[in-house]
Each structure stands twice: as structure tokens, then as C-alpha cells.
């Protein structure tokens, strides 16, 4: 006859973690252990009730795959390319004309921004086409870098 097991061993038997046949037999034959086993089982009932049969929504996997599928050519990147082309073609035209074109129907505040932008264009005339292309390429690269940092999947595993 083995000694009475401790409470943690009895708990392990209830959880199916302890499968020693001698201990299980003892729990059935020893009145004291049998009572402790029974009381413990009752005490664990609320915890047992925590389990449920709730299932993930059927669309979950589809939604997850959507998040994981590679992004199409980012719209922002396309906007950056168009912006670059527009600026470059504007550079080839008269900057004064561009100022008139952008100012029509736009508020005064935005006009200030445009003025600053036009000033930059004048500067670009001084710098020359190579300087403009290098500057714009740097801007686009910066934008792409920022966009990559702001992608959907973020963070590290916090362990």
C-alpha cells in the first residue's frame, strides 16, 4: 500500500496528468483520499465551466489571408511617381504659368504654399535638371521608406 498522495498529485490525477495506476487505485480504496478527491473535483467545477464551444467566425481565415496577401502596387507610390512626373514636366514649362494654373480656385493659405513651391522651382532652375532629379529621387525614396515602416503588420513579439 502506497502513502497517501499530496493534494497536487490528486489534482494531477483529476487533470489526467498523473496516470500511475498505483496512485489511482489508492485514491479509490483510501476513504480519506477518496473524499479529498471528490471535494477537489467539486471545487474545480467553476473552472471547468470556463470552457466553451465558441468557434471563430467562418470568414476569419479569409480575412487573415487578405491581410497577409502581398499589397498591390501601393497607391501612395503611384501618387509619388505621378507627382514626380508632374513636377518634372512643370519644370520644363514656364514656372509663372504653373503658378497661375495652381492658384485658380484655391484658398489664399494654400496659395502661400504654392508660392513657396514655385520659389523652389525657381531655385531648381538655378540648380539645374540634375539637381532637381536627385532632390526628387531623394524625396521619393524617403516617402517609400516611411510607407514601408507604416505597413499593416507591425511590432515584435512581446515576450
Amino acid at each position: 500500500m502506497i502513502q497517501c498522495p499530496d493534494k497536487l498529485t490528486i489534482q494531477a490525477v483529476i487533470d489526467g496528468e498523473e496516470t500511475d495506476i498505483q496512485i489511482i487505485d489508492h485514491l479509490q480504496s483510501c476513504p480519506r483520499c477518496c473524499q479529498i478527491h471528490s471535494e477537489m473535483k467539486d471545487a474545480f467545477t467553476p473552472a471547468d465551466n470556463l470552457g466553451s464551444t465558441v468557434k471563430l467566425p467562418a470568414e476569419f481565415l479569409g480575412r487573415l489571408n487578405e491581410k497577409l496577401s502581398p499589397q498591390p502596387f501601393p497607391a501612395a507610390m503611384a501618387a509619388a511617381v505621378i507627382f514626380t512626373l508632374a513636377i518634372f514636366s512643370a519644370y520644363l514649362t514656364n514656372p509663372g504659368y504653373l503658378q497661375w494654373w495652381l492658384s485658380v480656385g484655391i484658398t489664399r493659405q494654400i496659395s502661400y504654399l504654392i508660392d513657396a513651391f514655385i520659389d523652389l522651382l525657381y531655385i531648381s532652375h538655378i540648380v539645374g535638371p540634375t539637381g532637381v532629379i536627385i532632390g526628387l529621387a531623394a524625396l521619393v525614396a524617403l516617402e517609400v521608406l516611411i510607407l514601408n515602416m507604416l505597413r499593416n503588420v507591425e511590432g515584435q513579439i512581446n515576450v
Binding site: 471563430l56 476569419f60 497577409l68 499593416n152
Partner: peptide, 24 residues
């Protein structure tokens, strides 16, 4: 999902946490 549901008590939040788990 069930674990997250026990923590949040809300299906939407639990689904978000489950999705985030698999994304990570």
C-alpha cells in the same frame, strides 16, 4: 479565440486579438 474572448468579453475584440496573434 476562446481565450481572447474570456479576456475581453467581446467577440469583435477577441477576433481582433486572434488575428493579431496569427499576424505576429
Amino acid at each position: 479565440y476562446r481565450l481572447a474572448l474570456r479576456y475581453t468579453g467581446d467577440r469583435g475584440q477577441a477576433e481582433d486579438l486572434t488575428q493579431e496573434t496569427f499576424l505576429r
